[in-house]
Computed example of a mutant assay.
Amino acid sequence: MQAQATAKFIRVSPRKTRLVARNVNGLPVEDALNILKLTPQKAAGIIYKVLHSAVANAEQMPGVDVDAMVVKQVIVNEGPTWKRFLPRAQGRATSVKKRTSHITVILEAK
């Protein structure tokens, strides 16, 4: 049995989010939630919410013990990039890329 939850167009860089996501792959749900709660990065709070949503989705399935579930995979894909400009000296401008992420958490019953 698998349960999943997805958050799209999240305003955090995929590269930074993947660093946090690696910490919880393969862990039991309770341990993963505790680790994410104590991790200071912005991405940890977002992954925490998505993981919590995946647990709620798993509770809706009949005959599934949520306490026995593990985090099978946390997938972080790149979303659309916001392109902005920053004024610089002598009338120039530099481009700023504000990246977004699509985060998917997949839980699996052991």
Rank of each mutant, 00 (worst) to 15 (best):
G26N: 10
S95W: 04
F9Y: 02
R92K: 13
A5F: 10
Q41T: 00
N34C: 08
A68E: 12
T100H: 13
A89G: 08
A109C: 11
V96E: 12
Q60R: 09
L19N: 11
G45H: 06
F85M: 12
I46D: 00
A93G: 02
N34G: 00
R22T: 05
A5Q: 02
P62M: 09
R15A: 06
K83P: 01
L19T: 05
K110T: 09
L36A: 08
N25P: 15
P87L: 12
T39G: 09
E78W: 06
P14R: 04
E108T: 07
S53P: 02
N25G: 11
M1L: 01
M1V: 12
Q4K: 12
N77I: 06
A68S: 11
A44K: 04
T81N: 06
I103Y: 04
V105L: 01
L27N: 07
N57Q: 05
A21T: 08
G26H: 12
P62G: 08
S13G: 09
A21E: 01
S53E: 02
L107M: 10
A44R: 12
L19M: 14
K72T: 14
K16G: 07
L86W: 10
K98Q: 07
A58N: 02
N25W: 15
M61V: 14
H52R: 15
K42E: 15
D65M: 14
L38M: 06
A32H: 12
H52T: 13
R11P: 02
R88L: 06
T94M: 14
T94N: 13
A56Y: 09
P80Q: 15
K37V: 10
L38C: 05
I10A: 11
L33H: 11
A43T: 10
P87F: 13
V76H: 07
R99W: 02
A89P: 08
F9T: 06
V50T: 05
Y48N: 00
K8P: 15
L38P: 04
A43E: 09
N23T: 09
R11C: 14
P62Y: 09
A43L: 12
V12A: 04
Q73C: 10
V55S: 14
P80C: 15
I47G: 01
V24D: 08
V64P: 03
E30T: 03
A3K: 06
F85Y: 14
R88S: 15
P40K: 14
R15P: 01
V20R: 00
N34Q: 13
S13T: 05
I106Y: 01
H102W: 03
